[in-house]
Amino acid sequence: MATFELYRRSTIGMCLTETLDEMVQSGTLSPELAIQVLVQFDKSMTEALETQVKSKVTIKDALFKNEDSQENVGRVKIVACDSKLLTQ
């Protein structure tokens, strides 16, 4: 299953990356294994978003709105990968 690595930049992904970094640097973990964990994270995160998340959000300009909240931000960066790449 193809996965995107972009979720590694999310909070959860950064936390995992930092953790793996620390463990690899301390010698607890081999880099290869750390990469395996990351790849597994890619899969799990993608799957979780597909299966567990049902919420919808609208973005108008910089206003983010879903069912129970809305956020207004000055500037937002959006990184998106083509979803069709996964199905190829």
Partner: peptide, 9 residues
Amino acid sequence: TQHLVLAQF
């Protein structure tokens, strides 16, 4: 920018 959206399009 602190606000980030990671997604598939």
